[in-house]
Amino acid sequence: MNLNGAAAIVAGGSSGLGAETVRHLVRKGMKVGVMDLNPCDDAPFVAADISDEPQVTEAVNALADQLGPLRLVLNTTGTGGSGLSAGPDSRVDGATFRRVLEVNTLGSFNLARAAAGRMMENEADDQGERGVIINTSSIVAMEGQIGTAAYAAAKGGINAMTLPLAREFARYGIRVMTVAPGIFETPMFSKARGPMVDWLREQVVYPDRPGQAVEFAEMVEHIGCNRMLNGSVIRLDGAYRVPRGQHEWWIQ
């Protein structure tokens, strides 16, 4: 798909991987809008809670009306809710687990549904393509360490919906992909300190460093351009594999 001059929405585009992807796609000639709870000064912005379906639909429609026919929609929103699930040091209860699912899994579905609804209206290109929807998962979905049950389950749900949504939307010429990043240098991670953070940094095989946000953005760009990428989850992790972790990290 030709991205130059095309319109895109990045949910979670006010910070981290999303913000860098906004800047990257703009440099590549795209018209990019941002959906987030926090304001964004780099692109047209609409506030929305990703877990609230009416808000998401309204935001997608408002940005599409402003930018033009949507060709790429990326979701980088998410929340963690990490901690032990049982015992005297537990801090993840049912309400926490539910909220992690609502933001990560339900939010990804809400955005995919709203985006597909707008993309169906697009004029197809010469290959019959109308758009691509990209969700963000995590390698924790495949190899969750101690204390990440809620996050792993929520991101695993994103992985699991990728193929069925791609199969469903194929008749409209809409692709669905998921990127599962490993450790990336976002402002939140770069400022974190402690033994767990040091341990995480040491697990990346090559390059022997966390990923750079622009490398995530480049993957999004490539997915947008390559029509054969559809219905799959791509690990973007420098051969990182998550070990089991330690209970002690979650004990106050």
Results as ranks from 00 to 15, higher is better:
1 M>E: 03
2 N>M: 11
6 A>T: 14
9 I>M: 03
9 I>V: 12
12 G>L: 01
12 G>A: 03
13 G>Q: 07
18 G>F: 07
20 E>I: 04
22 V>Y: 00
24 H>N: 10
24 H>V: 06
26 V>W: 01
26 V>G: 07
27 R>V: 05
27 R>Y: 02
29 G>T: 04
30 M>Q: 03
32 V>N: 10
32 V>F: 10
33 G>I: 04
35 M>V: 13
36 D>I: 01
38 N>R: 10
38 N>C: 01
38 N>T: 06
40 C>V: 05
45 F>K: 05
47 A>Y: 01
49 D>M: 00
50 I>Q: 09
51 S>T: 05
51 S>E: 09
52 D>W: 00
52 D>S: 13
57 T>Q: 04
57 T>D: 05
59 A>T: 03
59 A>Q: 01
60 V>T: 04
61 N>V: 12
62 A>V: 00
64 A>Q: 15
65 D>E: 15
67 L>M: 12
68 G>R: 03
71 R>I: 05
73 V>P: 04
75 N>M: 02
78 G>N: 10
79 T>G: 10
83 G>T: 07
85 S>C: 13
85 S>T: 15
87 G>M: 14
87 G>E: 15
91 R>D: 11
93 D>N: 15
93 D>L: 12
94 G>F: 11
95 A>T: 15
97 F>W: 14
98 R>A: 15
100 V>A: 09
101 L>T: 04
101 L>G: 08
103 V>I: 15
105 T>H: 02
109 F>H: 12
109 F>T: 07
111 L>V: 01
112 A>F: 09
112 A>Y: 04
113 R>A: 11
114 A>L: 02
114 A>G: 00
119 M>C: 08
120 M>L: 08
123 E>D: 08
124 A>C: 06
128 G>Q: 13
129 E>S: 15
135 N>Y: 00
137 S>T: 07
139 I>P: 02
149 A>T: 13
152 A>H: 01
153 A>H: 03
157 G>I: 03
161 M>Y: 07
161 M>Q: 12
164 P>M: 11
170 A>E: 04
170 A>Y: 01
171 R>W: 08
172 Y>S: 13
173 G>C: 09
177 M>P: 01
182 G>A: 06
184 F>Y: 09
184 F>W: 06
185 E>C: 10
187 P>K: 09
190 S>V: 14
190 S>W: 02
191 K>E: 10
193 R>M: 08
195 P>H: 11
196 M>I: 13
196 M>W: 14
198 D>K: 08
198 D>E: 14
199 W>N: 04
199 W>Q: 07
201 R>Y: 07
203 Q>D: 09
204 V>Y: 03
207 P>R: 06
210 P>V: 09
211 G>N: 06
212 Q>K: 14
213 A>H: 06
214 V>A: 09
215 E>Q: 13
217 A>E: 04
223 I>K: 07
223 I>Q: 06
224 G>E: 01
224 G>S: 09
226 N>G: 05
226 N>F: 08
227 R>H: 10
227 R>N: 12
228 M>F: 14
232 S>A: 14
236 L>Q: 05
237 D>T: 12
238 G>S: 15
239 A>Y: 11
241 R>H: 12
242 V>D: 07
242 V>R: 11
243 P>M: 13
244 R>Y: 12
247 H>M: 13
247 H>I: 12
249 W>N: 02
249 W>S: 02
250 W>V: 03
252 Q>H: 10
252 Q>F: 08
252 Q>S: 11
